[in-house]
Amino acid sequence: MKHLLVTKSVSKSFGNFKALNDVSIEVPTRSIFGLLGPNGAGKTTLIRIINQITMPDSGSVLLDGELLQPNDIQYIGYLPEERGLYKSMKVGEQALYLAQLKGMSKAEAKKRLKYWFDKLEIGDWWDKKIQELSKGMAQKIQFVVTVLHQPKLLIFDEPFSGFDPINANLIKDEILQLRDEGSTVIFSTHRMESVEELCDHIALIHKSNKILEGPLQDIKKTYKTHTFEVGLVTDNEDRLKEIIQQNFEIAQADFKSLNDDLKLNIKLKPNETSNDLLSFLTQKAEVNHFIELIPTANDIFIQTIKNY
């Protein structure tokens, strides 16, 4: 797999504080790469280094296999977490200015702005000042400005904060579409449900170190515990529990169900398969719920950080 962006042993200190320690990540081309970590882990520092806002103390950043150059900023679109626009400037003027700073010609910027404004149905905002718009409206414009110059690499830091669910969904669809059209997306967030929905790769940064990286599916596979959630219909719950306990490790489960079932989490031993469990259970009781417990991104996040 080709990698659009690679950081190699990037370190950065601010005074005595080490913000990044030897962080290497590989962002595959045309992926949505989740950059995760608790507050203050160093995500923003890493993103700023990729954007050449801050220079690393050591290590290097490669874009498309080449060392990152000052001119490469035109290939990157960045939506920072701390974002805003000039309050007293008109929407259109402002968008044109920011697009020109990214190296677009005025005519080209105008054309593409029209396309995006029509697409998001915000065309009549052109002559409004930012201070007349709501926060969510301003965020939409910010999003347009970020993606306008069709960058190869898009970096979104908490892109959904400030959006209502409808607009958040709209933006999510746009991000997926941009990926399908060939962009690579780095996506930094605390909101694990959006990681689940969007990301195909993740990296976890904690206390200035990268502690986990890879395709989300693979990580989930390594983190799964071979535990199955089952619902069983029986007359004698205690007896059934005892029988199962003799063969498997069990725990009380809690899920919603129409019936008043016996709900259990059953863990398999490494050499057993789900079929072994299922055939065992069907002999003892009626199985009306059987599902493998797959760790969520949230579980992985919390578990990895606790164990670190």
Partner: peptide, 16 residues
């Protein structure tokens, strides 16, 4: 003003 309106990070990702 650029600091309080939080536009600064957007700008300096484009210019020095």
């Amino acid at each position: 003003e650029e600091k309080t309106s939080r536009i600064i990070e957007v700008i300096i990702s484009s210019v020095k």
